[in-house]
Design a protein around this nucleic acid. Sequence first.
DNA 1: AGCACGCCGACT
DNA 2: GTCGGCGTGCTC
Length: 826
Amino acid sequence: LSTNLFETDEALAWYVDVMIPVPITGLFTYRIPDELVHIIKPGCRVMVPFGKRKLYTAVVRKVHNNAPEGYQIHYIQELLDEEPLISDALLTYWDWLASYYMCPPGEVMNAALPAGLKIQSGTFVSLNPEIFWPDDQLSETEMVLLGHIEKKDKVSISDLESLVRSRSSLVKMIKNLYQQDLIILTEDLMGAYKPKTETYVKLSETFKNSDVAKEQIAILSKRAKKQYSLLLLLLSSPDFELNKKFLVHEKNVSPTTVSAMKKKGLLTEISKEVSRINMRVEEVLGIEPLVDFQQKALEQIRESWKEKQMVLLKAPTAGGKTHIYAHLIQEELEAGRQVALMLPEIALTEQLVMRLEKYFGDKMLVNHARFGKEAKTEVWHKINSGDPVLVVGPRSVALLPFKNPGLFIVDEEHESTFKQFDKWPRYHGRDALIKLASFTGAKVLLGSATPSIESYYYGLSGRWGLVSYDERFSNATQTRVQVVNLSSDKKLQGKRTFLTKTLDEAIRTTLANNQQIILFQNRKGYVPMLECGVCHWTPKCLNCDISLTYYKYSNNLRCHYCGYSTPVVSKCGACDSVDMRVWGFGTERIVEEIQLKYPGVNVSRFDQDSARGKDAYLKILADFEEKRVDILVGTQLVIKGIDFGNVGLCAVINADQLLNFPDYRAEERTFQMLVQLAGRAGRRGDYGKIIVQTGTPKHPLFDFLKDYDYDEFAEKQLAIRKQFNYPPFSRLIKITVQHKDELMAVKASELLSYTYKKYLGNKILGPEQPFVGRIKNYYLRNIMVKLDPGKDPITKIKKWIEETSSKALSENGFKGVRLVFDVDAF
DNA sequence: AGCACGCCGACT
DNA sequence: GTCGGCGTGCTC
């Protein structure tokens, strides 16, 4: 090598900073192998060794030649993308998500990249072919393991985990087997995207010669009728090839015919990559024309977009928002731009999705959690390619790599399920999409019958466009609301039933009219708790500070926070009394009482428990739609999932549970739920009725509900929010301090609060014990940060909090403290 | 997140 | 005396 060449290379960039999908804040530096120096760019994926022997997929953020000091640097193992897969714009958006939601960047990457694009190394075990018998005696489990390895030829360590008690014992046994040379360990990559292939049958090249073709046709037409007809089929097909599966299933061609002709060299079989998405290319229907009030709204939306990027559409349930969406989507697709439609729970919006599929056919993709990892990877690639398509999906559509988006729609924008609260990144799908729109220039349309108080405020204040109408389709009528006082009904005083006289009569009348009924109770299980009639002792979860819910069907007690379950107790744990009483009503108990009270009536339950499994919810809904069920009892699922016409009565068993929820959004959420529930009744012609049972019938919320006066309700709410400085007038960050030791949780949270207050003063509230003070054996304390969006440097403060928290804890000797930041917490 | 090291209680 | 639990620290 000449000295010159060496010097040239020396001047080039030799290092990369990469992000790795692990929950660690910060980037990691690797050395670029010489042959890749010119090629690696930010946005490329690379394989890097990280930690003990594991290989991870990392994304390059920066290429530089500042040699790092103080640690042994490793080389990039492999380059996965010749050209950057992640665009600069997308990387900027990831950075925003990480800093806004106070989340490690690696976790954003983890959530935003589908599994098929995140290859990892894993250890695989196979039998050593040279050794047949162990030196030592092996344990029974070790023999089982060996048998399993032999059967499967090559198994990943994680596949063996199910065969043993614990992971650590598995590692021990694997080590033992390895030391005896009985097995071979290899490190292999796993998780890579695998394209789906199908077999095609193609005529051989020899047929290009028409003489050969004529000759074969002549031979086969006489002697082999089946082969002859297959030959004709292929000759009349483009490229002389056809899908084998299609031939076998649709054209009655037997595989033997194919192989016979293959033997003669007349045709070949080829494997072709096919798409997992866009499978349903059914007949595409035209979108129905809009009626006048929809048309007017559409024009107002377009008008607003001329000045403002964001438009809020407030339109009643059964007001035909979907048609307006469809027309707008159509326009964008025709202009060659991408569109996203975000829906709260895709499983419950099957009807909407099916309707849209009819309009947009193969231009529509569904990003469903139920789809496998490969299909999701294909959706990701399709969006990343910039093709003008519509993506419909839950909050995670906000993490897709849009290239040329024209429009983002968020339906039911007030829904709290758009906020991820249980894992990183704790993002709000709607808000993230709004930010993405500001990066990409896409227009945004938010739709709801009962907008979130925040959105409505932005609409009213003119920051966003606000379009609203009250018209519904002529055959849908407004439901009449009746509020029933629970505390005045004497029978209910003893808590033996949930049926007030009013509700009972309404149920009988509705059944007599051959109409269906929905009963809403936001509690699953049989009863929320058991209680000793003597000393008031209650069985509690071992791991959480919450009373166990009693399930009669499975005869056990369960914790809704950690999943702990235990056989039902018949004796009081404190005083041994056998006088255990049930307390309150869950959906199971309501179903039971309805069955007793109205014999012969078909009752069904719709909650997370009964709708478990892939198609269970579809079955429940179909039964209800086809009137095999008269009364449907359910949790929140019934207010989202039901959209058919014969419901004459909706009833809320106890609205106080919603209303008394300890957070500033309780009233807003209750109002939204009740209005939505009301929208389920009386959709086709007849007047529907809604009954709300409550202990506080004088609550002003019910007056707004009776008049369907969202505007008044929202204005009242805004006044309260302003008075107590809640969003949209402030921004909230909830910081949860968790520790296995309660005293440590208290001390750590006090230290943090004290530390924050030195800089942020009265913007810091707490620490205080949350509603459930212990979950999964971790004691919890919450600290709230209340910031002023107009004055406070919020981004800077968040960064400061992130840096200061861990520093303060380690400087004061705290160990084992877990911190969760939840920005815009619900 | 994974993984190893190291410390402590429960069994041969 | 060892096995196996999990708390702690580190990863370019």
